[in-house]
Design a protein around this nucleic acid. Structure first.
Lengths: 324, 324
DNA sequence: TTGAAAGCGCTAACAT
DNA sequence: ATGTTAGCGCTTTCAA
C-alpha cells in the first residue's frame, strides 16, 4: 500500500503539499496539484484512514446498538441507518446488547477506544449517567434515555388510540389488550392509549389486559388464557406485531376465526405483518424514516460538535389488512 | 482520556515498560508491574485502539457484507457472526451491498483504508479476481466465490431432494417447483435436486418449474399461473421460505387449502416460517451455526496469517410443520 | 530489567 | 506556494 510519502516522492513535492491537495486546504499551485493527482492515480493511492483517525480523533465510524438484530423491527432500522450513513461517508458498527448492562458497557468502551464518532442506540437499560460520561454524540431511538438527549420516537399513545378506536368502529364490543413489558416506555404508552379509549366502557375489566411481553410464545399463551376466561372478546389490540401474530395463532388454536370471531390489530408495521395469513392490520411506524432521521441528526451533531436538543416524534399510520 | 504517557508518569516508569505490561511481553519486574497496574487503575486508562492499529496494521474489526440485512435470512447470520466475533474481541462492520458491484468495491476500499482484518461475505457478484487483489482473509457464505477460497455452504441439492421426496411420501402425485434466480448457485442446486427426484416421473413437465426469483410477489404470481395452468398440482417445493410463503398466499387466493389441496415445503428455516398460518414445513439451514463457523474460521485465518483452504458443507434438516 | 528513540501515516503549525 | 517538523498514542528495536 502506497503511503503519502510515496506519492510525494513520485510527484516531486513534500508530503505537506500532498496532504493539501488531499484535503483541498491551503495553497497549492495548479502545477503541483496536477503532479500530485497524477502520482495518486499512478500509485492507486488511498489515504490511510487509521493514521487520519489518530490525528483527527475521529474515525468516520458510528455505532448502532440494538437489543437484538434478530428482532424483526431492527433490520429495517439498521438498513436505513447504514444506507444513510454510507451515503455520508460513515461506516456502521453493529452491536447486539441484549439489553445487558455489561455488554453495553463493553461496547461503549470499545467505541471510545476506536474513536467512534457517535452512537445510535435503542435500549431500555442504558442509563442517563452512563450516557453522560460517555462523551460522544448520541441519538436514542424509540425511547428518551434522558431529558435533553436527542431522540427519535413515535406517537405511541396516539397510535394505540387509533388502533382501539378502529376496532370499535368495526363494531367490536369487547376489546382486549396484549401489552408489552412493564419496564418499556412505549409499552406503557400503548397500554395507556388503550385505556383512554375503552377504560371507561361499562364492560371494561382489568383482566382484559394480558401480558404478552412483546414476544410470540408469551402472547400465544396469554391470548389463550384471555379467550378462555372471556369468550366474549371479539377484538384484540396487541402492543406489537409479534404479539399480534401470537394472538392470531392462539385464536386459530381455539378453533375461532380471524377476523370473523376476533379482529386483531398490531403495532409496528414490520415486514412480517404482511406475510401472515390473514395479513395483519397494524399501526405502522415509519421505521426506515426513523433510521434515516437518526443518522442525519447524528451526523449533524458530529459536525457541529454540539448536541442539538431535539426530540423528533414521528407519526404513525393505520394500515388496514385482513385481520380486521 | 489518559494516554500511555500519563500512566508511565504516574507509575514512575517509561512508556516502554507500560507497553510491556499492557501486552505482557518482555521482562518487567514484579515491582514495576504492580506500579503500572495501579496507575492504570487510578487513571482508568484504556489503550487507544487507533494508535495500536496504526502500528499493528490490524484493527480488531471485521466486515460483514450481505446483500440486504432486511432479507430475513441475514439477521440471524449477522447475530451469529457478531456474537462469536465479540466473544473473540472483534468488532463487526455491517455492509449492505445490494449485490451492486460499485457498492461492493467502495466497501472493500473502505475496509483496506481502515485496516479491517477480514471479511465475511455473502454475494453473487463479487468476482474471484477482485477478491484476490483484496489481500485480506475472506470467508464466503452460501457460495463458492473462487476455488480455494474458504466457504461455508449447505447441502442444497440434498436438501431439495429431501423436500421433494418428503412430498412424495406424503402421497403427493404432482409436485411443482418454484425456483430461485438463474444466476444464483444455490437456486441451481436446489432445482437440480428437484429434478433428480421427479424429473423422470411420467407426469413430469418442464412447465412444473416456475420462476419465483426468491421473492414473495414474483412467487405469488408464478404460483397462481402455475395452478391455473396445472390444477392437478398437489405439492410445491419452493426454493426458499419467502417463495413458499408466497405460494401459500397464492393457494389461498385461489380458494384452495394448504395442505389439504396443495402441500408446500420451503427452504431456509428462517424465523418467519414459524409465524405463518399454516406454519411452514421447511428444509432448515443451520443459520446460526453457519455464522458462528464463518466467524471462527476467519479469526483462525487472521491469526495464522495464512489462508486455510477449506470448504465447510453443513447439513440441512427437514422440519415438518403444518403446511404438509 | 529498563529507557530512549524511531517509526506507523497522516495533518497542521511554522518558516521560508 | 512549498517544505520542515512536531506530534497523534502506541510498539519495538537497541543500548545500557
Amino acid at each position: 500500500m502506497a503511503s503519502i510519502k510515496d506519492v510525494a516522492g513520485r510527484a516531486g513535492v513534500s508530503v505537506a503539499t500532498v496532504s493539501r491537495v488531499l484535503n483541498d486546504k491551503g495553497y497549492v499551485s495548479e502545477e503541483s496539484r496536477k503532479k500530485v493527482q497524477q502520482a495518486i492515480k499512478d500509485l492507486n493511492y488511498k489515504p490511510n484512514a487509521v493514521a487520519r483517525s489518530l490525528f483527527n480523533k475521529q474515525s468516520k465510524t458510528i455505532g448502532l446498538m440494538v437489543p437484538d438484530i434478530m428482532n424483526p423491527f431492527f433490520p429495517e432500522l439498521a438498513r436505513a441507518v447504514e444506507d444513510t450513513l454510507a451515503e455520508l461517508g460513515y461506516t456502521v458498527i453493529l452491536c447486539n446488547s441484549d439489553e445487558d448492562t455489561d455488554k453495553e458497557q463493553s461496547y461503549l468502551e470499545m467505541m471510545m477506544q476506536k474513536y467512534v464518532d457517535g452512537l445510535i442506540v435503542s435500549s431500555n437499560t442504558l442509563s442517563a449517567e452512563r450516557v453522560k460520561e460517555f462523551k460522544m454524540p448520541i441519538v436514542s431511538m424509540d425511547r428518551e434515555i434522558a431529558k435533553g438527549l436527542p431522540s427519535i420516537i413515535v406517537e405511541n399513545k396516539k397510535g394505540a388510540k387509533m388502533a382501539v378506536s378502529f376496532l370499535k368502529e368495526k363494531g367490536r364490543k369487547r376489546i382486549a389488550h396484549i401489552r408489552g413489558p412493564h419496564s418499556v416506555g412505549n409499552a406503557i404508552d400503548r397500554c395507556e392509549g388503550y385505556r383512554e379509549v375503552v377504560g371507561g366502557e361499562p364492560w371494561f375489566k382489568e383482566s382484559y389486559i394480558a401480558y404478552g411481553n412483546y414476544d410470540m410464545k408469551t402472547s400465544i399463551n396469554a391470548t389463550i388464557k384471555l379467550l378462555k376466561l372471556h369468550p366474549e372478546i371479539d377484538g384484540i389490540f396487541a402492543a406489537n406485531d409479534i404479539s399480534a401474530i401470537g394472538a392470531i395463532k392462539a385464536v386459530h388454536k381455539l378453533g375461532k376465526k380471524v377476523p370473523e370471531d376476533v379482529a386483531i390489530v398490531g403495532f409496528d408495521g414490520i415486514t412480517l405483518s404482511e406475510a401472515t395469513t390473514p395479513e395483519l392490520t397494524t399501526i405502522a411506524q415509519p421505521i426506515y424514516e426513523m433510521g434515516e432521521k437518526a443518522a442525519k441528526m447524528l451526523v449533524e451533531m458530529i459536525k457541529q460538535q454540539q448536541v442539538e436538543q431535539t426530540i423528533y416524534r414521528l407519526d404513525v399510520q393505520l394500515i388496514e389488512r385482513q385481520s380486521t
